[in-house]
Simulated scan of single mutants.
Amino acid sequence: MKLAALTLGTVLALGAAQVHAETMVEDMDASGAYSMEELQAAYPDLTEDGFAQIDTSGDGEVDADELAAAREAGVVAE
């Protein structure tokens, strides 16, 4: 019984960790912002229109605040 409870607790904990996992985007050129290519590496289905929606400043790059806002709004998955 204890083993079943421990196993169930482990499975639930792992499931909760996966739900809260955040998609990692790598700033490959260390510019401090993300390019279309860098975001597409993490979000392969991202289109130019989707990138433009995330890039609210219109400067051709997505900074951490813009990405966080897009995740919060559900524009991209976490």
Rank of each mutant, 00 (worst) to 15 (best):
T56S: 13
D29R: 07
M24T: 14
A17H: 01
A52W: 01
Q40I: 04
M28A: 15
V19W: 10
D29P: 10
L67M: 07
A69P: 01
Q53T: 15
Q40P: 02
G15M: 13
E48L: 03
G58K: 05
V62L: 00
G60K: 06
Q40F: 10
M1V: 14
G74A: 01
D49C: 07
G15S: 03
G9N: 10
D49V: 09
V11I: 15
D49E: 15
V76E: 00
E37C: 01
E48Q: 14
G32K: 04
P44E: 04
A70D: 04
E66G: 04
E38D: 06
A21Q: 03
A4M: 14
A69C: 04
V19K: 11
L14V: 15
V25R: 07
A13C: 08
E38F: 03
V75L: 13
D29K: 14
A4D: 13
M36Y: 13
E37S: 13
L14P: 09
L46N: 13
A30Q: 12
D55T: 01
A33L: 10
T56W: 07
V19S: 07
A69Q: 06
H20K: 09
M28T: 10
Y43E: 02
S57M: 10
T7Y: 11
L8F: 08
T47F: 12
P44C: 09
V75I: 15
L8N: 01
G74H: 14
A30K: 04
Q53W: 03
M36H: 07
S57I: 05
I54G: 03
M36E: 07
M24N: 03
